[in-house]
Simulated scan of single mutants.
Amino acid sequence: MKHFFSIIGGMGTQATESYLHLLNQRTPAHHDQDYLNYILVNHATVPDRTAYILDHTKPNPLPDLLEDIKQQSLLKPDFFTLPCNTAHYFYDQLQAATDVPILHMPREAVEQIKISYPTAKRVGLIATNGTLHDGVYDHEIQAAGFEVVKPTAEIRDETMNLIYHDIKENGTVNANRYHHILAQMVNTLKSDIVILGCTELSVAQEQAGNHSYPVMDAQSVLVDRTIELAERNRQSK
């Protein structure tokens, strides 16, 4: 197969499914052959990223992710996507292990804010505790000239319940909980825009997007960048 990309997914599987659904839905296709060529690595048994980031005595996801990157690199994809925000904690080590470019989801999301919300100043972030702790988004947001608005302890706990209890464990989206989280970030903490910095939150947005709060869905941005890059590679080679 020529002109394809590899997706390092399964973190979690439902979030990867959401990424694939949006990817295929947004691809401009009228025939089977118009869709994009890709390989999905749904590595569901990769150890929990947040657990390791917060406690290095827990199983380390990096060896599994490196194995996936190295195996897929042998097939010579045009690029990689990594539809898991928290896994970007390991981005530099993963990119150093291959010559194949890896799209950086947090960076792409923040860049899109400058385009879609040019007057924004205060950028809120909701994500797993691992992503909030590792500072990947903080760096990107501040480098772009925005002020980072972190959630309170109450909002963090509510967000972790939505991600882990509702979506990962039970496969459901508590719309009221999701909307309450956004209301607190926008109305109480005065965020001009809220980044959905976890792909489970992207699932929540897909299923409960009937709200008026300004959000930047990192996974949605990754989908658009994936299509743009894949189409450009297909047309230029």
Rank of each mutant, 00 (worst) to 15 (best):
residue 21 H to M: 13
residue 22 L to W: 08
residue 23 L to F: 15
residue 25 Q to I: 03
residue 25 Q to K: 13
residue 25 Q to C: 08
residue 26 R to G: 12
residue 27 T to R: 13
residue 28 P to A: 10
residue 28 P to H: 09
residue 29 A to S: 14
residue 31 H to P: 14
residue 31 H to M: 09
residue 31 H to L: 11
residue 32 D to W: 11
residue 32 D to G: 12
residue 35 Y to C: 08
residue 35 Y to G: 05
residue 36 L to Y: 05
residue 37 N to P: 00
residue 38 Y to L: 06
residue 38 Y to I: 06
residue 39 I to H: 05
residue 39 I to S: 01
residue 40 L to A: 09
residue 41 V to C: 04
residue 41 V to Y: 03
residue 41 V to W: 03
residue 43 H to D: 13
residue 43 H to A: 08
residue 44 A to H: 13
residue 44 A to D: 10
residue 45 T to R: 04
residue 45 T to E: 07
residue 46 V to N: 01
residue 46 V to F: 09
residue 46 V to A: 05
residue 47 P to G: 02
residue 48 D to R: 08
residue 49 R to F: 01
residue 50 T to I: 02
residue 51 A to C: 13
residue 51 A to D: 13
residue 52 Y to D: 13
residue 53 I to K: 02
residue 54 L to K: 05
residue 54 L to Y: 15
residue 54 L to E: 06
residue 54 L to R: 04
residue 55 D to K: 09
residue 57 T to A: 12
residue 59 P to V: 05
residue 59 P to A: 12
residue 59 P to I: 05
residue 59 P to Y: 15
residue 60 N to L: 13
residue 60 N to F: 07
residue 62 L to K: 12
residue 62 L to R: 12
residue 64 D to C: 14
residue 64 D to W: 15
residue 65 L to I: 07
residue 66 L to K: 11
residue 66 L to Q: 07
residue 67 E to N: 15
residue 69 I to W: 11
residue 70 K to V: 11
residue 71 Q to T: 08
residue 72 Q to I: 03
residue 73 S to N: 04
residue 74 L to Y: 04
residue 74 L to P: 01
residue 78 D to Y: 03
residue 79 F to H: 14
residue 81 T to P: 10
residue 81 T to Y: 07
residue 82 L to G: 12
residue 82 L to M: 12
residue 82 L to H: 11
residue 82 L to E: 11
residue 86 T to I: 07
residue 87 A to W: 11
residue 87 A to N: 02
residue 88 H to E: 01
residue 90 F to P: 00
residue 90 F to W: 15
residue 92 D to W: 01
residue 93 Q to C: 08
residue 93 Q to V: 11
residue 95 Q to Y: 14
residue 96 A to S: 11
residue 97 A to T: 11
residue 98 T to C: 07
residue 98 T to G: 07
residue 100 V to A: 05
residue 100 V to G: 03
residue 102 I to N: 08
residue 102 I to C: 10
residue 103 L to D: 04
residue 103 L to Y: 06
residue 103 L to C: 09
residue 103 L to I: 08
residue 104 H to A: 08
residue 105 M to D: 04
residue 106 P to G: 10
residue 108 E to Q: 14
residue 109 A to N: 07
residue 109 A to F: 10
residue 109 A to K: 01
residue 111 E to W: 04
residue 113 I to P: 00
residue 116 S to F: 00
residue 116 S to P: 03
residue 118 P to F: 14
residue 118 P to K: 01
residue 119 T to S: 08
residue 120 A to Q: 05
residue 121 K to G: 05
residue 121 K to F: 06
residue 122 R to T: 02
residue 123 V to I: 12
residue 123 V to T: 04
residue 124 G to K: 00
residue 125 L to A: 06
residue 129 N to C: 01
residue 129 N to V: 00
residue 130 G to K: 02
residue 130 G to R: 03
residue 135 G to A: 08
residue 135 G to K: 07
residue 136 V to F: 02
residue 136 V to G: 00
residue 139 H to S: 12
residue 140 E to P: 01
residue 141 I to W: 00
residue 141 I to E: 00
